[in-house]
Amino acid sequence: MTKVVGQKSVEEARSPRPEVLLGHPAVVQAAINGLGFKRRYSLCTLSFAASEICVEAFNRGNSGVRGAVAVAITAFLEFTYAGIPVSSRPPVLVSTHTHTGRLEINITLPRFVIDGGGAVRSFNPNPPGDGSRWGSDQLGDALTKHFD
């Protein structure tokens, strides 16, 4: 994989390779590209310490570890889209990085929802203000407790 570090392109081999857990990259990219908004997507990373999630078990497909990760992803998405019907939510992309020895879940969120009339409306999944920060902190606390 080629990535830019500073002003220089650097080749980086990630082993294991990132894994897509949810969504389809082309579908999410098309949804983002179709938006006329200034801010078309948001990104989020849920990062777990090596002591919270066993990366080796996750990469082997351990159902208990995978199930716990699925709970974290579902909790995040339900918090983010609270009150918005699933049919009105945009397609999202959820992928992982484990090459660093810990689990990182990367979530790409197109910044729109579909209103009751079928129109595309701009949506900020993390609006500014204390309420959003408080809610995010509560979700983080709940996930930390879940992962002990």
Rank of each mutant, 00 (worst) to 15 (best):
K38V: 06
E78G: 04
K8N: 15
D141T: 12
S47L: 05
E19A: 11
D148K: 11
A30H: 08
I32D: 00
I105H: 00
S9Y: 10
T2H: 13
P127M: 00
G61I: 08
S9L: 07
A13V: 15
A49G: 14
H97W: 09
V27S: 14
P16D: 08
D137V: 06
H24R: 13
T74C: 14
N62T: 04
F76S: 10
K8I: 15
S136H: 12
F37I: 05
P25L: 03
V65H: 00
S132E: 06
T45C: 07
E104K: 05
P18K: 00
L77Q: 02
E78N: 06
G61D: 10
K8S: 15
T74I: 10
P18D: 00
W134G: 15
S136Y: 12
A57R: 15
A68I: 01
G101F: 04
L77Y: 01
H97L: 13
T100D: 12
S42L: 04
G101C: 04
P110L: 13
V10D: 03
P125F: 05
P91T: 09
P91E: 09
V5P: 07
G117P: 13
E78C: 04
F37W: 08
T2A: 14
E12G: 02
V55L: 04
G34Y: 09
C54V: 12
A31T: 02
I73A: 10
G116A: 15
H97E: 14
L22T: 09
T144Q: 12
R39E: 10
R133D: 12
G118W: 00
S136T: 14
C54A: 14
G131M: 08
T100L: 15
T2C: 13
T100V: 14
I53W: 07
G116H: 12
H99W: 05
I53R: 09
P90F: 01
A70V: 09
F37A: 11
N59C: 09
S63N: 06
S88H: 13
H146R: 10
G67M: 13
G140H: 04
V120P: 02
V10C: 05
A75T: 13
A119K: 09
R60M: 07
F147A: 07
S15R: 15
G135Y: 02
I114N: 01
A75Y: 10
T98V: 12
F37L: 07
L77H: 03
R66P: 14
H24L: 07
S87T: 09
K3H: 11
R102E: 10
L143W: 02
R17S: 14
G135T: 06
F48H: 06
P125G: 07
F123C: 00
N106K: 13
